[in-house]
């Protein structure tokens, strides 16, 4: 944790710019999850296509983060916690880009599902979407505050998401067995659930990076939600 600023003020400005980029990316990814899940629940194809279009900006910011990190390493030669933070920012930007892709993938499935009827799986997905979005939000707050404890707290929440996914899996499996006509829709919904579950995993990865960047120590092995259906789920 930085106690004072750097003697070279421009270094602090560069680090500030880097944090701002990562926070903006994170904010956009968070919004993408929210809007993708809302578009799904409301079967709103227009809103979904907007999520797909907005993902470009997330990709652009990732490229800017990469450029800035290379410049920072080349010109400022960061050391110790500065070095860990700069590398963490680069890795976090990569992970947020993936989160954006998952949100985009959810949005892309909305037009197919718009033809289908609603199911109670939607209620589960809405709740799961909220939980995942909150994880991404809170982990980014931890990043902005460079708060390893807040990061560890988000990290511990991933089990909830795994439990959501397992309930969804069981619900959709029952649907498919009872009504084979629902298989197409149910499969898409299952993939959407899996996307949200992956976003949760990525949020925990970000939490690990924040923890390492600010303490120099790794978080331990995470306890995962029991998954009776996929033996090597990650």
């Amino acid at each position: 944790m930085a106690t004072t600023g750097h003697t070279v003020k421009a270094f602090d400005e560069d680090l500030g710019e880097l944090r701002a980029f990562v926070s903006e990316m994170g904010g956009r990814a968070e919004a993408a999850i929210n809007e993708a899940v809302a578009a799904l629940i409301q079967r709103n194809v227009d809103a979904a296509s907007k999520v797909v279009a907005n993902d470009k900006r997330i990709d652009e910011i990732e490229a800017e983060v990469e450029r800035l990190v290379i410049r920072l390493i080349a010109l400022r030669a960061p050391m110790a916690d500065d070095l860990r933070e700069v590398l963490a920012a680069l890795k976090i930007a990569g992970v947020i880009e993936r989160i954006g892709d998952y949100a985009k993938n959810i949005a892309k499935r909305v037009p197919v599902l718009a033809e289908e009827g609603r199911s109670e799986a939607g209620t589960l997905l809405a709740a799961m979407g909220k939980a995942v979005e909150a994880m991404v939000h809170d982990v980014l707050d931890a990043f902005a505050a460079r708060d390893p404890q807040a990061a560890a707290e988000v990290w511990a929440r991933d089990k909830t998401i795994d439990d959501f996914y397992n309930s969804l899996f069981r619900t959709l499996l029952t649907h498919m067995m009872e009504n084979p006509h629902s298989i197409t829709a149910a499969t898409h919904l299952l993939f959407i659930g899996k996307n949200l579950e992956r976003i949760g995993d990525h949020a925990t990865n970000i939490a690990e990076m924040i923890y390492y960047a600010s303490t120099g120590q790794q978080l331990g092995e995470r306890t995962r939600g029991a998954d009776a259906f996929a033996p090597d789920a990650n």
């Binding site: 930085a2 106690t3 004072t4 600023g5 750097h6 003697t7 070279v8 270094f11 960061p78 050391m79 110790a80 916690d81 500065d82 070095l83 860990r84 120099g216």
Partner: peptide
Amino acid sequence: IFTNPRETRTKDYITGRYG
């Protein structure tokens, strides 16, 4: 020392925050 110094004074010095 250069990636994860134990002492705050070391860290402040090598990261350019000394003084």
